[in-house]
Amino acid sequence: MAQPNPLTTPPPGADTQLVPGHVEHAEAHSGAFPPFETSGFLSQLIWLALAFGLLYYLMDKVALPRIQAILHARAERLRADLDQAQAMKAEADAAGIAYETALRDAQGKARDIAQTTRNELAAEADAKRKALETELNAKLATAEATIRARTEAAMGNVRSIAGEAASAIVERLTGQAPDSATLDRALDATAH
C-alpha cells in the first residue's frame, strides 16, 4: 500500500500553483503515499493540537455546561409541570367527589319531596273521591226513593182506573153496578 505509485505523483507544479515561491515542496511530496508522508507530521500534529484544543475548550467551558443546563431546566420544568398536573388532578378529583355527594344528596331530597307530594296528592284525591262517592250515594238514594214513590202512586192510579173500568163494564152487562167490596176482591185476585 505504501509503495510509491507512479500514477500518484502529482502533476508538476500542483503545489507551486497554490503556493508560489515554494517550489521545493513539490519534491518533498512526490513519491511517498501521502498519509505516510512524514514531512507533514509535525505541522499536522500542531494544527490538530490547536484545533482540538480549541474544540475542547469550547465544549468544556461553553457548550456542554449550556446543554446540561438546558436539559436540567427541561427536566425541572417537566417535574414541576407534572407536580402541578398531579395537584390539579387531585383538586379535580376532590371537586368531583364533592359534586357527586351533592348530587346524591339533591337526588335523595328530590326523591323525598316527590314521595311526600305524591302521598299528599293521593290522600287529597282519596278524600275528594270519598266525598264525591257519599254525595253520589245520597243523590242515588233520593232518586231511588222518588222512583219508588212515583211507581207506587202510578200503581194506585192503575188500580182505581181498572176498578172504574170494571164497574162500568159490569154495569153495562148487568145493568147494575157492582158493590165496591166485590170489586176490590176481584181486583186483588187479578193483581196476583
Binding site: 500518484t8 501521502p34 507533514g40 499536522q44
Partner: peptide, 21 residues
C-alpha cells in the same frame, strides 16, 4: 491516492525535514 495529498495553503517554512504549513 491523489485525494489524500496535503496541500499547503500557507507555507511557514521548515524545521529540519519537517515542512510547516
Amino acid at each position: 491516492i491523489h485525494q489524500f495529498e496535503l496541500k499547503p495553503l500557507v507555507s511557514l517554512g521548515h524545521i529540519g525535514h519537517q515542512q510547516l504549513a
